[in-house]
Nucleic acid binder design. Structure first.
Lengths: 347, 347
DNA sequence: CATACAGCACAAAACGTTTTAGAAAAAGGT
DNA sequence: ACCTTTTTCTAAAACGTTTTGTGCTGTATG
């Protein structure tokens, strides 16, 4: 159909010049007609469109990008991908829902989404530098990736704020303080009187703010605060360890444990069973993020669903707005959904 | 540092021209020095490298791509992302492990990986057409995405073969026939005498070949073949439905069920419990793909781990080999790992 | 009848590279 | 001193677009 050379050379894609020749107009006119820019007559425009369609012409993205300084691709840099050897991090569920929504949202705006495992590596792909903007997931305090992007004045939106950058407001995410209190209120209304917090060790807003909210809530309700930090990566084993310490120590036993991660929560539940404690009878359990582990545990574990579909969508949309010059201030706060389940005595 | 304009205009990235000027050579020389192409003297080369480093110069990916006809980005098109509304498909676990490995492998070769939800949509991003090559996940028979890419002579590698394209051998994946028999042999060695197959409805190689292997195996062992098809998307509920039909009908009750998907298997297990059947006492269960659901069920479900990390890596590497002109014939067969668990009476 | 002004189309410049083809300089051979 | 070869470097073309500026119609305005 549109092979250019008369000889038997490989079929190269048609260029704007081919369309111009075929339609009997200049390349300028073709470009204008296709982009609705110039002042072409309706007849000419239609003719060009028809020819372009017939040749299955599509502007070469690199040529277009080179000229107008945009690539049409957004970068997605999320921590979980950094893990060496295993791509099954704690947040697998969260990540997948997030990335899927982000990719589809970008698509809806005619943009691509490129996965960039770790922007701080020295051998990152050429292309990572040519991206129009970045979405960075769950930055840690003074995140180096963020520093790099901001220094290079690349538009960037994060999921959750950087605890070390109060002035940076281009982020989307839940109101961790409010959501934490919601869970604690639920536990209290189900009879809990000594709630322990099992937090992670990553220095991100989620951990920082949740602990802050927990302490302030405990103070206000005259409840003793007890916090344990376990690396996110320790997963269920880490949760089980923590549970053993909390439930078998000489301190008064907590009657509820609020775990930040779903896997920690699953570990706590497993350990409680090993200690012959009934859940929710002797112990209430809740998690700060929903996961396969919380949904499928027995009993199922009450958890905050951070609705990553929403944040993936919102993050990409905020980034696109920034790229378009929109400067309405962030952040964009997204409500989480509290999935009440059997581990707190709910349906 | 490298802001180009003397006025207070926005800091634009340095171009090759800036490096040339600063190093006192031509742009050609800079290009050659940076890409190790020309015949520059060692002294000049070093000087250029030093300047480029000082200016933090990086070739603009679009300009480079435009010139040499390569973008440095691979596309990844996987079915699960097509799901509307929910990005939590059956294969979440599989997908994430696959995509993560693929992204990192691409990175290791200095390439980016772009997520392209659905190539058959008309409004796909500009950029999707500019990608160097594609990895397409689990094609269905005569997959339209594949047709499109092959027609456009875009290099493409699939995960699992297209059942309608025997001549297309550029795929990576397990030997479904062999792996299926392995599972059936295991069930038989654990005492199963009537094994039912619970397959999906997608017309891909995985379903097609597994059923074929099952029927031939059953014939060879003089075992009655019984196959049920349930949509993959029906998930655990679908599995439970199927289990009810298989276990409560008037036909002789199967003493083992082999489910293609992990979620179906989890549904079967749940239903078996509701029917007061003990697993593995009264019923053996195995799954054709490992998932969160099989790992975390009680009892844990024996499953084939398709090791998506391996296939993600292999797919990207095969694609890169093709791009480099390597024509060693495919496919690349990857052994699966059989995770024996309590649902078949194993540890 | 000149002037102005739409309306329409186009040539050429620009984006930042890589590559081609060749020139200048240095070195070697008689 | 001259030719040949090798080494080192460079100007200009090319990649496929978009954008800028300009020219050419013809019709309305004075």
């Amino acid at each position: 159909m549109f092979r250019m050379s008369e000889q038997g050379s490989p079929p190269s894609r048609p260029t704007i010049r081919d369309v111009a020749r075929e339609a009997g107009v200049s390349v300028t006119t073709v470009s204008h007609a296709l982009n609705g820019k110039g002042t072409a007559s309706e007849a000419t425009r239609q003719r060009v469109l028809a020819v372009a369609d017939r040749l299955a012409y599509r502007a070469h993205p690199m040529a277009r990008g080179l000229r107008q300084g945009r690539t049409g691709v957004l970068g997605l840099d999320m921590r979980p991908l950094d893990a060496i050897g295993s791509y099954l991090p704690e947040g697998v569920d969260y990540f997948m829902r997030f990335a899927g929504a982000a990719a589809v949202t970008a698509l809806d705006h005619g943009l691509g989404l490129m996965l960039v495992p770790d922007l701080t590596r020295s051998d990152i792909p050429q292309y990572a530098h040519g991206v129009d903007g970045y979405v960075v997931g769950d930055p840690v305090r003074d995140d180096p990736v963020l520093t790099r992007l901001i220094d290079a004045s690349v538009p960037v939106v994060t999921v959750g704020r950087d605890p070390g950058r109060p002035a940076f407001t281009d982020w989307v995410g839940p109101d961790d303080l409010y959501e934490t209190k919601r869970v604690l209120d639920l536990l209290r209304s189900r009879g809990a009187e000594r709630i322990a917090l099992l937090a992670g060790t990553d220095d991100n807003a989620w951990n920082v703010d949740s602990e802050k909210a927990y302490r302030s809530w405990a103070r206000r309700h005259g409840m003793p605060a007890r916090v344990l930090h376990i690396p996110e990566a320790a997963g269920e084993d880490g949760g089980a360890d923590a549970a053993r310490r909390l439930l078998k120590g000489r301190q008064p036993r907590p009657d509820a444990i609020y775990c930040q991660t779903g896997r920690h929560a699953a570990g706590v539940l497993a350990e409680a069973h090993r200690l012959d404690l009934s859940v929710p009878g002797d112990l209430l359990i809740a998690a700060g993020s929903d996961a396969q582990q919380t949904r499928h545990a027995t009993p199922a574990i009450t958890a905050l669903d951070l609705v990553p579909e929403e944040s993936g969508k919102a993050a990409v949309e905020l980034l696109i707005a920034r790229l378009a010059g929109d400067t309405r201030p962030g952040p964009i706060i997204l409500p989480a959904e509290l999935r009440t389940r059997a581990s707190t005595g709910d349906a």
